[in-house]
Amino acid sequence: MASPQEIDAFLAGAERRAFKQAVYAVRDHHHALDIVQNAMLSLVERYREKPPEQLPLLFQRILRNAIHDHFRRARVRDFWVRLVSPLRDKDDEHGETLESLAGHLESPQRDGPEQRSSGNEELAIIEAAISELPARQREAFLLRYWEELDVAETAEAMGCSEGSVKTHCFRAVAALAEKLKIKGISP
């Protein structure tokens, strides 16, 4: 069983990456903080009995579910808002979800303050390229190479086969290489 100190130490090491992962997925600073908060609370409330070595994988699964829940709630909210809103425009009635709207929020002025303050063009380009990846490819790339989970752990966190993880990672790397090449960034 993980002690409160062990959980605190683990979360202290993981919280920034978790926040960034949420930002890459939802592209909203405040929603990302909400997601991380929910993930932290879920980990402590439900899994504090687990041994400390299991926390990283559990936290990744919780975080991923929290991100998916965010989009699910947004879709439901969007549906009801469209249904009852007397001001809805006919042009908007093509099933555009908040998840797809998030894809349009790419201008620098809409990014979170952490991006504005970095002032690093290369970092901004790389982070934008990560955000633009399809969700499964982004998840696989971040879990496998950033969180440094092995293929089996990544597959467990994503709820898919190891073969799928390898495919998603391969495609993510190829897509990133292409995007970075276009932007003139070399390693």
Binding site: R16, R17, K20, E114, S117, S118, N120, E122, L123, I126, E127, I130, L142, W146
Partner: peptide, 8 residues
């Protein structure tokens, strides 16, 4: 780059 982003 991503690690640098978290540090900044």
């Amino acid at each position: 780059a991503l690690h640098r982003g978290t540090r900044e």
